[in-house]
Simulated scan of single mutants.
Amino acid sequence: MRLGLSTPVVIQQPGIASPWEADAGPADLAAIAAAADAIGFHHLTCSEHVGIPAQAADTRGSVYWDPLATLSFLAVHTRRIRLTTSVLVLGYHHPVALAKSYGTLDRLSGGRVILGVGVGSLREEFDLLGAAWSDRGAEADTALRQLRAAWGQPVVDGLAIEPHATTTDLTIWVGGRTLRSLRRAIELGNGWMPFGLSPDTIAGYLARRPAPPGFDVVLSTDRACDPLGDPAGTRRHLERLRDAGATLVNCVVRAEDPDHYRDQLAALHTIGDPL
């Protein structure tokens, strides 16, 4: 089981983000990304929300850095770690436009892009962007097929697309919290990245729809890990996710400041590496 990082600062959910993140800047973010890269974490993430309904901000938070800009910035400060959207809402984008913009990032980063995608859950955000809310699941299936067909291609529907991704082999992780999202991931993706589900529910879904060989199950810690303060509890939590079927884990890390965060990363990797 490999460990990835739910990147701090760029998403700040109440009750999960540490207080220091509110005042952190690009230099802190760059230093943390570089440390995660050097330690050997598998990936960094960045979510997508243009805007959060004000009445939902107390639970969802209101800080969501733009993923394309953020991951492009992080690409400059890292060398090996993968750059992952977690997740892009497919209904907000034309699939060929995604192939162009994130294909450019893939080329700039030396082929390190993973696209985490989802169908979306905020009706107000769809309305703001003029995106279609109804039938968004079926539309997402169509968009996934179009995105995969366009990825890394120099010509799409008679149009030259330059630059494009370094390869036509796109890694797609499908987000969601339903059995249908797992079906979509197995049929159209390379991995499943559920949210808001217990490990027991995830294990039950995977028992009903077994994953094929080479398929990733990307689970998230349901609380901030404290590997220096509670190494045994951190290990138990990671083991529970592994036993539920995780091949990768998006880790949220508790810290008092950026320096402490980097120390926590080293301890977390030591705990998780043998798992």
Rank of each mutant, 00 (worst) to 15 (best):
P154R: 08
D127P: 01
A149Q: 15
V119W: 00
G152M: 10
A131R: 06
L129T: 07
L122I: 15
T178W: 01
R177N: 14
D106T: 04
G137C: 09
P154H: 10
G120M: 05
G176Q: 04
W133P: 01
A149I: 05
W133F: 13
L179S: 07
A131Y: 02
V174Y: 01
V119I: 14
R183E: 15
D169S: 05
A150D: 06
G152C: 08
A165H: 02
V113L: 12
W133L: 12
G118S: 11
G158F: 10
W151R: 09
L179V: 13
G110W: 12
L159F: 07
D127C: 06
S181D: 11
V156L: 12
G130S: 12
L147T: 03
G120C: 09
S134F: 00
L170K: 06
D169W: 00
T168N: 12
L128N: 10
D157Q: 11
G118A: 14
D169Q: 12
T171D: 11
E162C: 06
L144Q: 03
E139R: 15
Q146A: 15
T167G: 08
A140V: 06
G120L: 05
R177A: 14
T168F: 01
D157M: 05
L179W: 01
G116M: 09
W133Q: 10
V117T: 11
A132K: 13
D157R: 10
G110D: 08
L170R: 05
V113I: 15
L128P: 03
V119H: 02
E124I: 03
L182F: 02
G158T: 05
S181H: 00
Q153R: 15
G103Q: 01
A160K: 11
R177Q: 13
R136V: 07
L105G: 00
R107S: 13
R136P: 02
R183M: 07
T166P: 00
G158Y: 12
G111M: 09
L115T: 05
G175H: 04
S181C: 10
G103F: 02
L170V: 10
T166R: 07
R107I: 04
R180E: 13
R148P: 01
E139F: 04
G111C: 09
L122H: 01
F126C: 13
R136Y: 02
E125T: 10
R112T: 03
E162L: 12
L182R: 03
R148T: 13
P163W: 06
V117F: 01
T178Q: 11
L128F: 07
Q153L: 11
G110L: 10
L159K: 05
A149L: 05
V119K: 09
R177M: 09
L147M: 14
A160R: 14
D135F: 02
A149E: 07
D127W: 04
R180P: 00
D157I: 00
R107Q: 15
V119C: 08
G152Y: 00
I172L: 15
L179N: 00
G110M: 11
S109A: 14
R177T: 13
E124K: 09
R123E: 14
W133C: 13
